[in-house]
Design a protein around this nucleic acid. Structure first.
Lengths: 584, 584
DNA sequence: AGAGAACAACAACAAG
DNA sequence: CTTGTTGTTGTTCTCTGGTTCACGC
DNA sequence: GCGTGAA
DNA sequence: AGAGAACAACAACAAG
DNA sequence: CTTGTTGTTGTTCTCTGGTTCACGC
DNA sequence: GCGTGAA
């Protein structure tokens, strides 16, 4: 019945009936008055098409494919699809418009950002570099935006530094909180270059003279530590890798292996997975899955003559020692694996995790060294601890803003930092060090207070002290949303909440940048290798921007909030100060 | 203005005005009455979506992507997109429906087909096998259809044979003209198995007892011949390949190389291309492009210290001998390259090319051997000739239907075959052999005449003789469309045109099957690796079917054609017979 | 983590 | 009547493998 | 039973 | 060959 | 009131690198 | 100037 009834309708019925009927038709979905009679809006269709291409990562020529043309014709015969050429122009225009909008937000808000940078080589042999900006918006939502995605002639420190400089200029951003980078040697030079430039630009560009600008990617450090441990197991892992490779290298072999699995009555349906040598992650997963099939591999030695021959240069197939090593590895590296996953988040606050997980790795390593029942194992742990010390060995090597982040986590505050210090560093330094950290918070407080005179009012550093002296929050770890807490308490701690906003925006790993390259790899695949650099940037950036929309409010408290704040002060103000006396 | 005017329109105007206005709106495009008022047709939208997914090779989850949902909503707010699950069901249903339709065509027409088969290993370690069917439809258009796309446990001859058997049974096809395969050892067994089965099924399944069922892929043979020649140049090619690899292995090196290119004032913008060792094609293209940059490579030796170091195990970078070898290779293999391209066609008739190109290769090789001024070169040519002889050395090794195809090309007929025989085979066999070929045509004629008694009428083999005695067509080679000629002359040569239809449908290479795997590789990429086998087949087959639509007419002449035929006979019939006397 | 897909369990609704 | 915008068409450039089967000694 | 040619 | 894209040349049309 | 169709949601499984820079001897 | 660690 549907179609013809509706059609008569549109042609004959008076206005009011039409409206009524249509509401019946569109079974209470979220389309209100707009869909009344599908008015054809060419502009809106063109825009939707442009967004489709960008967001869903389609090639421009998608628009000229048979299937899509027929589909579009069916849905809206009045819409003439543009050519791929015109579409590309539309995309670029949208990119420019969005960039302008976003730039206005950053300029008018004088938004302070944390940035991450990373480098990549595309299949066309171009060095690409990406800069992503991170900040927390007025609604206390963590935001990340790709600033640029461009080619560079080389990876020299100065080259990278200059690109960052001109990128910030282009975006009108002069306030940079941190720059997260991996441990490539050129990055140190690059950051120093940027620091020098930012100092010249404006007084408020750098917080505390840029002493804490440099942030090392924790995922990369963790990776180095694990690889140090992996070294000692190299032979065993390589033999198991080869065994897995043999089994997976052809359907016939896989079939034979499956028979062995069946014979050994191994239930697990999940197959062995082949690893990628550059990501230890995958090695872990390979060993974990291979261990489940140990017996099947051992049976292969008897059942498949070629299997043994395959290993003639490798000193035979994996032996029981190899399997034992793999077992140890999987047991011990489980925690490292889990931490890597946590570190790789870019949708939630991570800066408060850094220190915790670092401590947990420290204690894992030291306990393994100290127990020392297994010589191989403790030797491995010593190697790993050396690597650990290179980056995390002293409190000075760690960006101290990460400690501020722990302190600004209302569940831990100063207490926890102190506790960890005792565990990690020599006892007589604990007092001194935690005093230094507290002082850093005070210095930040002073800095932020002076920065914007409108914020000030409450006497010097009182907000920070008040916060530290309030008791810690006792909540279930999984349910706690740190940004929600600070949003709620932003009235109570005016200055501190500004610090929190910046500190919690710090990305502790370069994954945000790396994921841009993952997009890049999908966009510049072998079929689209002739996409121009300009277009690549337009596609990648505008995809990122369109997918992460937010309401760019002016970052100011409303009148209601101000009133609420006054009420809070009068209610909690006194109790906070009394507690401050007892602890400080 | 557009939108609101149109809207008021749809709501207020009487019917006739509406129609009138709408025609104005849709600026004379090919949408007639259907688009009058965009009646929403859910079924049609669903079908268009299903086709979109199949034809344009999109993942099922495309339908759940943000951009596409917004786009569809914009174009037709009433259309609720189905879930990916439902979509998959729709796709499978469409596959089943289309298969049924296609099967009916084959069964009711008792369509004789030529098939090609090929095997492939997917990234998931499955052996896939594809069977494609080729035939010429009632409009004299060459058609190809994928019959199945399935996994096999191994590549054993019997396994493959059984798959072919059951595939033919499933499609209700019992008339098979040829089976085109590559030179894999198992294929011979497979074809013998199928031949045996087909003999049992029905009397008319095999033409001439299946003696000419087996067809070797010419592209593979050509590939073997060329690779034999490549062997002798191995060292030179490998050095040049390494030089190209070095230059392309990083942006920095590429930059250095480009500077060398500039210094040497080489204008050509096209870059050097890296080859893929399994396809000699790409080696050819690599050498061709590398030669243009010879001087730049030589300059690299002076300008880049690392370049020379890179070759320390290879005996230095390419020397002048290597470049000379490459030059010879490119000059000599140009014709092989061009022939490979010709052989790889699957959209046009190729069976009449086979013999010609084979002869041309023969003369290329023999002239090179006989001239013998360059020892290296003639040694290479001898190796290649050996490989040539293995597959093409004797007339008996060649599927003689390919000779029939040359004879049925009205530009050449028997004359050309005779001419080539003189050139290729020993003189005293020419007469005997061309007699044999002519007899084969006569035998085919008798067979086709008896096959369908409705065709017959003109006395035995007269049609064939009549055709042979008519003078050859003198036309420009590029403009000549052989199928158009036979369509025009099908009335004149009733029986012979049936033979032509089958002979010209023979695919001389397995490219049609290989291109199915290329689709397969795109569909089963690393992101869609968990697609079920059943779905993979549904996607690949229905894409092939939907893209190649045709009007499945019953393969019978119409009444007008029959009348025209009578007229033709009376006009040309006598003159043909007179000429037949003089030549036969 | 992110993108793709399969499968199972469940929900809503129409047909008998 | 010129100039700028929007779109089309045609040409050029780019990218894509190692184990298993059959046969013969 | 093992090497070789082909995909 | 086939799929993707860029670029150049050209065509149509609207704006000045 | 059952059964079949259509669709949704949640869980599980699968896949992804070798040259260049900086520093220290 | 050459090796080493990191991406």
């Amino acid at each position: 019945m549907g179609t013809s009834t509706l059609r008569n309708h549109l042609l004959c019925c008076p206005d009011y009936l039409n409206t009524f009927e249509d509401e019946n038709q569109t079974t209470s979905h979220e389309m209100k008055d707009e869909s009344k009679s599908h008015v054809f809006d060419k502009e809106a269709c063109r825009k939707a098409l442009t967004r489709l291409i960008i967001i869903d990562e389609l090639p421009f020529s998608f628009v000229e494919k048979e299937g899509f043309q027929q589909y579009s014709k069916q849905l809206e015969p009045n819409f003439d699809l543009p050519s791929r050429r015109t579409l590309a122009r539309d995309v670029y225009k949208l990119f420019c418009d969005e960039k302008q909008k976003l730039r206005n937000f950053f300029v008018s808000n004088k938004q302070r950002v944390c940035i991450t940078i990373d480098a990549w080589t595309s299949i066309q042999n171009y060095y690409y570099m990406v800069i992503t900006a991170h900040f927390i918006d007025s609604e206390w939502k963590l935001q990340k935006r790709i600033f640029n995605f461009c080619t560079v002639p080389d990876h020299k420190g100065e080259t990278i530094g200059k690109v960052i400089e001109s990128c910030l200029l282009e975006w009108g951003v002069e306030r940079v909180f941190t720059i997260t980078v991996d441990n490539a040697s050129s990055n140190e030079l690059a950051i120093n270059y940027v620091k020098k430039k930012l100092k010249n630009w404006s007084e408020n560009g750098l917080v505390l003279d840029g002493d804490f600008l440099h942030m090392r990617c924790c995922a990369h450090i963790l990776n180095l530590i694990v690889n140090e441990g992996l070294k000692d197991l190299h032979v065993s892992i390589s033999r198991i890798r080869n065994a897995v490779k043999y089994v997976k290298s052809s359907p016939a072999r896989l079939k034979k292996f499956k028979i062995c699995v069946e014979h050994e009555r191994i239930e697990d349906a999940g197959l062995v997975v082949q690893d990628v040598s550059t990501r230890w992650n995958s090695t872990y997963l390979m060993l974990e899955s291979a261990l489940k099939f140990q017996k099947a591999f051992e049976r292969m030695e008897d059942d498949d003559r070629h299997y043994v021959l395959y290993f003639k240069e490798d000193g035979g197939p994996p032996n029981s020692d190899d399997w034992e090593n793999a077992n140890v590895f999987v047991l011990f590296f489980k925690s490292f694996y889990d931490i890597t996953l946590k570190f790789s988040g870019s949708m939630y606050v991570t800066s408060n995790l850094y220190f915790h997980e670092m401590c947990s790795i420290h204690s894992d390593l030291t306990s393994l060294i100290e127990s020392g029942d297994d010589l191989v194992l403790s030797k491995m742990a010593i190697g790993m601890k050396n690597k650990y010390d290179k980056y995390w060995g002293s409190i000075d090597r760690l960006n101290n803003l990460l400690l501020i982040s722990v302190i600004l986590d209302p569940r831990y505050k100063l207490k926890y930092v102190r506790f960890c210090f005792e565990d990690i560093f020599v006892i007589d330094e604990v007092g001194k060090k935690s005093e230094e950290v507290k002082n850093l918070l005070i210095r930040l407080y002073e800095y932020y207070k002076d920065l914007d005179t409108r914020i000030g009012g409450c006497g010097s550093s009182s907000g920070a002290k008040r916060y530290l002296l309030e008791p810690c929050e006792h909540v279930d770890d999984d349910d706690f949303e740190i940004l929600a807490w600070w949003k709620m308490n932003s009235i109570k701690y005016r200055v501190l909440s500004h610090i929190a906003k910046d500190v919690f925006a710090i990305p502790i790993s370069t994954v945000a940048s790396e994921s841009a390259f993952s997009t890049g790899g999908r966009i510049i695949d072998s079929f689209r290798s002739s996409l121009s650099l300009k277009m690549v940037e337009a596609l990648i950036c505008s995809q990122n921007w369109l997918r992460n929309t937010f309401v760019p409010l002016q970052d100011e408290p409303t009148m209601e909030e101000l009133e609420f704040y006054e009420a809070m002060i009068s209610e909690f103000g006194s109790s906070a100060t009394t507690e401050a006396m007892t602890l400080d």
